[in-house]
Amino acid sequence: MIDYRIDRRAAIPAYLQIVAQTRQALEQGRLAVGDQLPTAREVVASAGINPNTVLKAYRELERQGLVEGRVGTGTFVTGDLVRLRTDLVSPLAGRLRDWLDAAADGGMTRHEIEALVTTILDERERGTVR
């Protein structure tokens, strides 16, 4: 069973945090086909968030073909996500470490690095990358 950690101070809405954490658990193999997600009541009792938020997250996961709500019993994992590809991850992580070493040598702080990454990701999303 997955336990959701809702960061109520985060800029990301709670329902998207639930979606992201579920996807991450699927990628990491902590959740597999047939597993049951916590009921809305269980999430609400621990996180103190609106039950409709949980249901909204589950509807979104259902729309993505990852889970299925069964009347009276609960929500179950029906779809698999491609596991994080270790063959791709380790070389990328290596290059990222080199890059971060260079950034640290140049005196960049963690915040500056995060801001730079966010800016570039945003640019790519908007399609304005040069």
Partner: peptide, 30 residues
């Protein structure tokens, strides 16, 4: 909030609540 939201999830209770704390509103209110 846990008590209130559990009650909403369990019984379908309708809630109108006033608050100053906007951070709480974002995750508890429709």
């Amino acid at each position: 909030q846990q008590t209130l939201m559990t009650e909403v999830a369990t019984t379908g209770m309708t809630v109108l609540m006033s608050s100053h704390i906007l951070g709480d509103v974002q995750d508890t209110c429709d």
